[in-house]
Design a protein around this nucleic acid. Structure first.
Lengths: 345, 345
DNA sequence: CGCATTACTGTGTTCGAGCACAATTTATGA
DNA sequence: TCATAAATTGTGCTCGAACACAGTAATGCG
């Protein structure tokens, strides 16, 4: 299992390393019989070029444009930075530079503006969270025409062939259902969508479908599954009414990271017997997980999504590896006892 | 944010790269004022050597000895190979070679024999699963005296300072308790230890402690927590008696990967109302998870443990990075809905 | 046949760090 | 003062891949 170099192969084939190099890179100008001989040798000993030596020579500077929501506006995105930094640290030997553009996750206009800025920075590749389906579709098409590879994470834009890293949202809904079902098999269930402008409608619908599908496929479930849509600004009042209007409620599933709003209300209304499942390890959520008001959190792991997304792009740039089309992360179930290690940076 | 090389620094300091090199490696023979000047420059621009170029020159062959239980005897260990191969693939640019020695996890004598063979292979570093406390302590001490760094995973030998990768077993027990408690808050609970020769007594005890601690700290839990110890060979009969002797049993916690034995029995005895929590994604366990007889599995992730253990050792060898003393993996909670992505290699 | 063109092959340099060794400067002693 | 030792500093080669360019052989054509 010796490591073969170009020089070794040249010696074995009785030619010079230049010729071997020409064969490897299909640069032509090689006699057919020589080429066949070298190619046979290459496959025989399964030659793998030393990627490190290759990059020592080709020390280019790579620019990566990053377009993600502003964590100042939605704390959910804060941990992405950790993931990005991890990936950069892992490839610190290469000259990879990032330009990060933060957009307001409630504003499609801002998304487009920041995207313009991103374009001006002339990135070699782009990593983005394409929150808005319509706008993202257009933007992604544009990048495709410019031949700039794009990696997306968090939510998939199915109209585009861009690489995607995230979770199976349908399955995620099923997991929530399974969890609620296992801790409370009587009473009604509610699916709660909390969103400023229903921007994330598609994800939430997928989760709802999965959730409902789980219960529909049960033999013996006869209770009702309700849906409650709340705008961010009207959250508290509307939620209070909803809870009080449905005294038979035993379980609630909040389809994004805003479960702490519901938890706060359940505590103030003394309805903590209602089981609650939500998403993401925000401080507020974790606190309610520890008090027991939230029973389970599903971890969407934005940190890991950003990390992997960036890592794949860098590996494409420096090692010429193909970018995986789609990668679905495992979905972590979190309760008060296993949460701690997931919080570390 | 330019990437500085030794040459750049030499130029800035008005000396040759040889001198800079001597300063960086404290090789002496440098005039004090020159050394100060160079050192100041180094810190000022935060010089980071190009690890890749460094290793291009120092292309040594590294030998890693691996001592793990034989997956033919206990299938739990099978996925370790995947983790090891992942780590090797990640560092395929370097000449890292492994020598794997498999030992019978039920035999301390075999552990010692294989260890002798391992020693003869003259490894630079060692990765091992130190199943047997007494024997492992002795072996680890020996390696320390030989100055061979060792990484351990799965279980920690606290008497040694060897690097350890694994999970917090006490917390793992608490997680099992929390899960059982959340799906069944009435009736008695049983902790089931299934082990051929009580070899893993220490881990299982830690898990039991965590499990009991969780329930002891509850305000309103009045039921009994039983312990059931079974030898592998007598499993079925003794377990059947135990279950029938305790009609009030509502939850069972199997402290290792052998929950499928209990599940099989619960099905044949028509006691599937008893909630069951166990460990590890063995085929048998996953099947019972899907039928619903096992409610949750706790994922000890031996694959990731082996991967990280090997990765840290390789990074020590090729990049001279310090080996982390202790790394506790997050503990994954698995149910029938989120199991699939965890099974992929 | 001679010269040009094509077809092919080999050589040498580069990347950044490491290190041996050569070269230079400074110090020491008779 | 000068040889010699000691201290300090600079030079040049290496690793593996990439590629420019030089070199060689074969063929074409007048």
């Amino acid at each position: 299992m010796k490591k073969y170099t170009i020089k070794d192969i040249a010696q074995l084939a009785g030619v010079s390393k230049g010729t071997v190099d020409r064969v490897i890179h299909n640069r032509g100008n090689v006699a057919k019989d020589v080429e066949d001989k070298v190619r046979a040798l290459l496959t025989e000993i399964n030659y793998q070029p030393n990627l490190i030596a290759r990059n020592l020579k080709n020390n280019k500077i790579f620019n990566i444009g990053i377009l993600i929501p502003d964590p100042e506006i939605d704390a959910y995105w804060a941990v992405c930075t950790d993931g990005i930094n991890s990936a950069l640290a892992e490839f610190s030997a290469f000259d990879v530079r990032i330009n990060t553009f933060l957009y307001d996750p409630t504003s499609t206009a801002d998304f487009l503006t920041r995207n313009e800025q991103l374009l001006k920075s002339e990135p070699d590749v782009i990593l983005m969270v394409p929150l808005f389906y319509k706008e993202a579709t257009r933007v992604l098409k544009h990048y495709q025409s410019l031949n700039i590879p794009v990696g997306t994470f968090n939510n998939q834009i199915t109209s585009s062939s861009a690489s995607f890293i995230g979770q199976d949202l349908y399955q995620s809904g099923r997991i929530a259902a399974k969890l609620l079902h296992s801790i409370s098999d009587k009473g009604d269930m509610a699916i709660v969508h909390i969103d400023e402008k229903y921007k994330n409608a598609v994800h939430m619908q997928e989760k709802e479908k999965g959730f409902r599908n789980y219960f529909e496929n049960l033999d013996n479930f006869e209770n009702t599954i309700l849906t409650c849509k709340v705008k961010y600004i009207e959250t508290e009042d509307k939620l209070r009414d909803f809870i009080n209007d449905h005294p038979n409620l035993e379980g609630m599933f909040v389809t994004n990271s805003k479960a702490f709003h519901v938890a706060r209300l359940l505590e103030s209304e003394h309805k903590t017997h209602i089981k609650l499942v939500g998403y993401d390890l925000l401080c507020d959520n974790v606190n309610y997980l520890n008090t027991g008001t939230i029973d389970f959190l599903i971890h969407q792991n934005p940190r890991q999504q950003a990390y992997l997304g960036l890592k794949y792009l860098i590996e494409y740039l420096v090692f010429d590896k193909p970018i995986p089309e789609k990668f679905l992360l495992p979905i972590d179930i979190i309760n008060s006892e296993n949460v701690t290690p997931f919080l570390r940076p």
